[in-house]
Design a protein around this nucleic acid. Structure first.
Lengths: 195, 195
DNA sequence: GTCTATAATTCGATAGAC
DNA sequence: GTCTATCGAATTATAGAC
């Protein structure tokens, strides 16, 4: 066969439309409230097609919630600017892709979505952080802390809609949050005897 | 006054049992998945009693999600230890009260819960932060940033269950996060021209 | 005050015609 | 490949007996 990739089926457009509608609904309503019927209506197709293509609601979500942080290669970044580059990247990344919002909303109630979120931030973010951890024993913790601030930013800005976080210009958020990530990544571990 | 408060009705114990069960279910399952039937079963009463006492599922949630951050009076705290005192307080506060977890899970999909969460962090936290804001123009933003890190910590530790955040001793988390809150509260505002 | 019975929806999923 | 029809289960909420 000269055609390595499977021949594009006519239904591929339908599948893509379903996925797009599913991401929107899951992002806006969360896993439970987003219904297959509503998703199908948005995609202008019959609800049974969703089942046919994705098997179940869980299967549809699994396909719709595929997410790549697309973390840049930080090798060439001056080590003092890691925090700034990271915050800016995250804001850009999910300001244009609602998949993370869908995952965030779903992870609150759906165990599978929470598992996926753990994987994303442990694997993708953890791998990047590991490159800079002077002490391997603290890299996982540092990655977790970065995730906590990043997800807290996303949660307050995109999910809860806390006014001062929604109103802020991205540049100002970068200015405030970058030093936090910078310290989590490259700062000294705290004295264990904090009290 | 021998009896200022309304005489305790016999049903008060039932009401309290319902509230307790409701908080547990809402915290564990979120608003949508927590059913009145399950809550009633936990409280060992009939589902219709829930409706009788709280009118609707929304009404029950409103009663169950009443939450007071119980922020301590920070007047006597050395200004350099504000961050540390705050992180420690938050960890203690919701390590023993699942209401915040319930609110967090619910706020992801329920607009009313999100509204309540905005109120809690804008009013209660905002009021405390306002006492230290050198510049009133930045106090709302500072409170929002504190909320972002606090909620991100809660989200990763109690909701998503990110391993490095779950495993961490509270004292270590305090050591890492306190400087972040400290800077958000009392640090200089970032240069607007960050780029 | 407490519970039974049920109304009125809504949803995920299936079967099968065309 | 697409759609109609529908099943079976689960939910909130109500009406009313005791």
């Amino acid at each position: 066969m000269t055609d390595a990739a499977p021949r594009a089926r006519r239904s591929d457009a339908t599948r893509a439309a379903i996925l797009r509608a599913a991401r929107e609904r899951f992002a806006a309503d969360g896993y439970d409230r987003a219904t297959i019927r509503a998703i199908a209506a948005d995609a202008h197709i019959d609800p049974s097609m969703v089942m046919r293509y994705y098997g179940s609601k869980e299967g549809l979500f699994a396909a719709a919630a595929e997410f790549d942080l697309r973390l840049p290669d930080l090798a060439g970044v001056p080590s003092g600017q890691l925090g700034e580059v990271l915050v800016r990247h995250f804001l850009d990344r999910w300001e244009g892709d609602e998949t993370l919002a869908a995952l965030l909303r779903a992870a609150s109630t759906n165990p599978g979505a929470a598992e996926r979120m753990r994987g994303i931030f442990a694997d993708q973010l953890g791998a990047v952080v590991a490159r800079f951890g002077t002490d391997p024993a603290t890299t996982a913790r540092r990655a977790g802390l970065v995730a906590s601030q990043i997800l807290g930013l996303a949660f307050t800005r995109y999910i809860v809609g806390l006014p001062p976080m929604v109103d802020a210009e991205p540049a100002e958020l970068v200015g405030w949050v970058a030093p936090t990530l910078q310290r989590y990544l490259t700062g000294p571990a705290p004295d264990p005897r904090t009290r």
